[in-house]
């Protein structure tokens, strides 16, 4: 039943969403601004999208960001999944609560402190700052998000499935790949996506750990804005927003369709068809 929305509800909705999306809408609008100055509207144009592709520094930043995102997300997913398995499976072991507390700590630790401590570590290890240091730093802080997601998926997982597999002659390692992994895969993929997004978004930790040759996209955008932003920045930000939106919509449509299909099939099965 749809009830007529009250004026109060409509107003709070409009205010809330404006608060959230007005800045983004302005960003998108100004990416089509013909003027060099970001604050004055002087007619519609797509020239900054072309200009963006010509801007070598910007494209290099995109490339570095993607490489860091892909590698750190993958590494974080592997490590985070292993940590989740230990925490969910090992039952009680000596230092379990300490261990799980330590896994979750980066969730609440200020980024500045995390960035600083990693710098100190890399300096102490005499590492040149650059691609690898950012990549490792991103892995460190995004791994705990993967752990949280995979662990929640594991807690729903019916362990008798693993026992059934072993009962049928499947050794433990094979059981993991044949039974456990397919069941927790959605959680692992979601964890990877989150780790990738976190890496794309990060400015603070990357700034601490970047070398002279490695500038990530957020760092580049921030730097350009400091110098007086060009509309190219608006253009590339708009594209990022577009990609994210498409990704989120696609994911939710797919899961919804799958759920509906499953419900329908269960209904049919119950009706003895």
């Amino acid at each position: 039943m749809l009830s007529r929305p009250s004026w109060f509800n409509i107003t709070s909705l409009v205010v809330g969403f404006s608060f959230l999306y007005l800045p983004i809408v302005i960003l998108i609008v100004f990416s089509f601004n013909d003027a060099q100055l970001a604050t004055v509207w002087s007619g519609f144009s797509t020239r900054w999208y072309g200009g963006m592709l010509q801007n070598e520094q910007l494209m290099q930043a995109v490339w570095i960001t993607l490489r860091i995102g892909l590698t750190s997300a993958t590494l974080a997913t592997v490590l985070g999944t292993l940590a989740a398995l230990v925490l969910a499976r090992q039952g009680r072991f000596f230092g379990r609560s300490l261990f799980s507390g330590m896994i979750y700590a980066p969730l609440v630790m200020p980024e500045v402190i995390l960035g600083l401590s990693l710098v100190l570590l890399f300096v102490a290890m005499d590492q040149n700052q650059g691609f690898w240091t950012i990549m490792i730093a991103h892995t460190t802080f995004s791994m705990c998000y993967v752990t949280v997601i995979v662990q929640s998926r594991l807690s729903e997982f019916d362990r008798s499935l693993e026992e059934a597999a072993m009962d049928l002659g499947c050794p433990p390692v094979r059981t993991f790949f044949h039974i456990t992994l397919p069941q927790i895969l959605p959680g692992i993929l979601a964890g990877w996506m989150l780790a990738f997004t976190l890496s794309l978004n990060d400015l603070v930790i990357a700034s601490f750990n970047a070398g002279p040759e490695t500038t990530t996209l957020p760092m580049r955008i921030y730097g350009q804005v400091k110098l007086g932003g060009t509309p190219e920045i608006n253009a590339i930000s708009t594209i990022l927003i577009l990609l994210m939106t498409v990704g989120v919509i696609l994911a939710s449509v797919l899961t919804k369709r799958q759920r509906l299909k499953r419900m329908e099939e269960e209904r049919l099965a119950a009706a003895h068809l």
């Binding site: 019916d158 008798s160 026992e163 072993m166 499947c170 050794p171």
Partner: peptide
């Protein structure tokens, strides 16, 4: 180990 015992189990949850 369970995977080497010549018996099979039918689980209550079916699994």
């Amino acid at each position: 180990p369970p995977y080497k015992r010549p018996m099979n189990m039918m689980f209550q949850s079916y699994a």
